[in-house]
């Protein structure tokens, strides 16, 4: 029965590309559509929480606080499939040009990074001050 237990996972996708890795601009609609395609294909149900979620994180490169705003998604999945979600978000780091993506699994927070050699890792950003 343990494998049938559903776990609530939520993750945040910033509305803009990372300005250290990329240009800090809005995502192309293709990036959002890619995420929808993946969620639709992988999971039976998910929801996108209406509205934007403002936050702040500290850049590991510059040590400076970076304000951002994100869209929040909630997915209820069996525990056995959490790694699938992690893999999806690792790829999302590349698609959305992010250093990492905030993931909360039943209240436990982790930051998913692009796989080594992934697109986000390959994009040299401007040097911080």
């Amino acid at each position: 029965m343990t494998s049938d237990r559903l776990v609530e996972c939520s993750f945040l996708i910033p509305t803009h590309r990372d300005q250290e890795l990329s240009d800090g601009e809005l995502h192309s609609i293709d990036a959002w559509n890619w995420l929808t395609d993946q969620l639709y294909g992988l999971f039976k149900a998910w929801t996108r929480v209406p509205g934007l979620h403002r936050g702040m994180w500290e850049s590991a490169k510059t040590g400076k606080p970076v304000p951002d705003q994100s869209r929040r998604y909630i997915v209820a999945i069996p525990e056995a499939r959490i790694d699938e979600l992690r893999r999806l978000l690792a790829e999302a780091c590349s698609v959305f040009h992010q250093q990492c993506i905030y993931l909360s699994v039943a209240g436990q927070v982790e930051f998913v990074q692009a796989p080594l050699g992934g697109a986000a890792q390959e994009s040299p950003g401007p040097e911080g001050p």
Binding site: T15, D30, V95, A119
Partner: peptide, 22 residues
């Protein structure tokens, strides 16, 4: 859905660089 996002200024239409990435 894409049209709604673009017209609300929440996403941008793709250019050739996004298509290359795809």
């Amino acid at each position: 859905s894409s049209r709604l996002a673009v017209s609300a200024g929440l996403a941008r239409p793709p250019d050739y660089r996004d298509e290359l990435e795809e």
